[in-house]
Nucleic acid binder design. Structure first.
Lengths: 234, 234
DNA sequence: CGTTGGTATGTAACATGTTAGATGTTGCGA
DNA sequence: TCGCAACATCTAACATGTTACATACCAACG
């Protein structure tokens, strides 16, 4: 008993705990980012629990995590809602994204392996194919994978998870904007420029490319707010 | 509802949160960062719940949040433990901190108000005083406040919360290292250099200062690992 | 003596009942 | 008609009972 509570040399297990709350979290997050659950929509824990065949506990746990992530808003004793888009917060998320990814690129360029570059260029090739065939969902997956590669290539434990988390607001917006046809082409061009800059070991150019891209996104966002104000806060 | 004052194991503090789980979270987080709860130590939910006079539910909620933050590790059906220090993760946290704060400084220098600068310099003056009198706890609070100012000065909604969250690993280490007497003086010098750079609108210099400081911290960490290996993972 | 498997134990995960509080409605009185 | 208070209703927060599972222990067996 004392041996257990002391737990000095606890065996570390690398197992990915596949608990119910994790599953619920993944399902809900996916639904929110893909706008299957629309911004502002109410989430009834009881209903979700019934639909997924679990009790309210794992649903509450998952929703708490989503609240920390800024994807839902919980009003105590009142209700839980999918977070509306909030321009100021999206701006902050963009700032964080640029800061992290440009710093990651800076680090990556110092220790870039040919294999990593090869992977990125393969991903780009697939993006071109997806864009040419207007496969939005597939393009989006490749997009996400590329960003993960950039985070991973810096060689820092856990950086991908942090970057991914802070990107979630943006991911939701990106996914909405991707359906503007021109957007996918623009995104592809930007990605190509970034990878080219990495290949040239030119982090400054990559950073600049990313920043200009962001201002583009800002304009599209204002356009979206005019067309669908119900998705936005205040 | 009262988080019982009978909880002598935890330092009493101002609790601004409204719900019980927020209060428990704040108390536990404070206890972990201040090393009142040591790395590797087991956390018994039931015991914590009893000590704070609440049920297991808000304790579990708080611990889940701390797990997301990387301050505790939950092993399902086995136990919950205060996370040990892990050099690789600390390195990642340092990377994130530098990336965010230098980017924030870059932004701040473009829109710095005399009031903000005045606040920072006042804070510095208090730090000098605290350092001169070896007031570790007070110095630490001022340190944290200065970082918050830097985040806030960028004028981005929610940035402070993100930066604070990603800094929590580092804060724990800083607090341990602060008790090396020389450390406080070094930290003060670094802060002075950063503020001076901001005042000069020289973000590059601030960034460089920060990075050199980090390598210093890395050395002290290795030293700490030799002296107290039980605090570290692997 | 080392290995194995059954079992005891303790924990987080999960289920479900209860409480407090926020909100919306209605009805009464001015 | 308007103000407002009592109340009905709904929700998340909270409490607590139950289950599944990871681990430790120990005895039986090779």
């Amino acid at each position: 008993m004392q041996i257990r509570s002391a737990s000095r040399d606890f065996k570390q297990q690398k197992v990915v705990a596949v608990t119910r709350k994790d599953q619920v979290y993944t399902i809900l997050r996916q639904a929110i980012i893909s706008s299957q659950l629309a911004p502002g929509e109410a989430i009834r824990k009881e209903v979700v629990a019934a639909q997924l065949g679990v009790s309210r506990t794992p649903v509450s746990d998952a929703i708490n995590r989503l609240a920390d992530e800024g994807l839902v808003e919980i009003y105590p004793q009142t209700g839980t809602f999918v977070a509306r888009l909030w321009l100021e917060k999206i701006e902050t998320a963009q700032f964080v994204r640029v800061a992290l990814e440009t710093a990651a690129i800076r680090r990556t360029t110092e220790q870039l392996t040919p294999e990593t570059l090869e992977w990125m260029q393969q991903n780009l090739e697939q993006q071109r194919h997806a864009a040419a065939h207007r496969e939005f969902e597939h393009f989006y997956e490749l997009d996400e994978a590329l960003h993960d590669m950039i985070s991973d290539a810096a060689g820092l434990v856990g950086l991908r998870e942090i970057a991914s988390r802070e990107r979630s607001q943006i991911d939701r917006v990106r996914r909405l904007l991707l359906h503007y046809e021109a957007r996918m082409a623009e995104t592809l061009v930007e990605h190509e420029a970034i990878i080219a800059a990495i290949a040239d070991r030119d982090a400054d150019r990559a950073a600049k490319t990313m920043e200009t891209h962001i201002s583009q996104m800002g304009r599209m966002l204002l356009h979206l707010r005019d067309k669908r104000p119900e998705l936005f806060k205040s």
